[in-house]
């Protein structure tokens, strides 16, 4: 791993983000929800490195604490769409025929909507909660998992080792689960990593337009949304810092993809 600088950088960045997510509330210098009427809209200073917002809350603390919420929304959404998507995709790729047609058209249907609008619609219909953001994000990402997993499975279904497993009398479903599916993981890992970035953006985007996370809670998207109105009057730090945090997180997950693939690829193991 050490031979690749990009992988090292992205992995350390990833660990840092996870660390903030886990221990953010202990690291934050101030209470992210404590308002201070005498101390509003202060620019970055030594006491408040990221400044304070319109209610006098410390922006740095809010950015740190928001990590957990954003990360957990993204993680659970990605986990959900990975599990369901790869199951559907493997079935479609392995058995083909009617499975393939039905699952294929299902994912086409999802793809036919503008994905963000679909997510908005889902959250609006199901109710304005954090869980529903997770479901909406998971659903709009499903087709990508289905497609990657279907393609990877169908090229491997005729492989020699699959025929060899049949000669051992292993049932079809077990062949899919133990012989084919693990071999589709390396490309799926890239998908997962890229998707983490999208999921974070998506969650932030939904909060930005006022869906999902409610006002006092710290979340990057909602912070950008609240801070955006102040940019015109010169208080740029309200939106810039959560926005930068968002960007760094997405950037990190995009870089992580290649590293992750190497990690699960047996060819790289020794």
């Amino acid at each position: 791993m050490s031979e690749n600088l990009v992988t090292v950088v992205s992995f350390s960045l990833f660990l840092f983000i996870v660390f903030l997510g886990l221990f953010g509330e202990f690291l934050a210098p101030y209470d992210p929800l404590a308002t201070a009427a005498s101390n509003t809209l202060r620019p970055p200073s030594w006491t408040h490195p990221f400044g304070t917002d319109n209610l006098g809350r410390d922006v740095l603390s809010r950015v740190i604490v928001a990590t957990r919420l954003d990360l957990s929304i993204a993680l659970s959404a990605v986990a959900l769409s990975f599990v369901i998507g790869s199951a559907l995709g493997s079935v479609a790729g392995f058995w083909g025929g009617w499975w393939d047609r039905i699952i294929g058209r299902f994912s086409d249907t999802i793809m036919a909507f503008p994905l963000f609008v679909l997510a908005m619609g889902i959250v609006a219909a199901l109710g304005n909660t954090v869980e529903n953001i997770v479901y909406a994000t998971a659903i709009i990402n499903l087709p990508f998992y289905i497609r990657v997993s279907r393609a990877e499975t169908s090229v491997r279904r005729e492989a020699g080792y699959v025929a060899a497993a049949r000669l051992c009398g292993i049932s079809e479903i077990r062949i899919l689960a133990t012989q084919v599916f693990p071999n589709t993981l390396p490309p799926m890992m890239v998908q997962i990593s890229l998707n983490m970035g999208w999921a974070i953006l998506n969650a932030a985007g939904l909060s930005f337009i006022g869906l999902g996370v409610r006002a006092p809670d710290a979340e990057w998207g909602i912070m950008v949304a609240e801070g955006a109105t102040y940019i015109v009057s010169g208080e740029w730090w309200l939106a810039l810092f959560p926005g930068a945090a968002l960007m760094i997180a997405v950037f990190c997950f995009n870089l992580l993809g290649d590293g992750l693939r190497d990690l699960v690829d047996p060819q790289r193991r020794t």
Binding site: G160, Y161, A163, A164, P182, N183
Partner: peptide, 14 residues
């Protein structure tokens, strides 16, 4: 039982 044509393709890489 059977021995396959391509020894690379017939072994599960994992």
């Amino acid at each position: 039982q059977m021995v396959f044509q391509d020894p690379t393709d017939s072994l599960n890489p994992r």
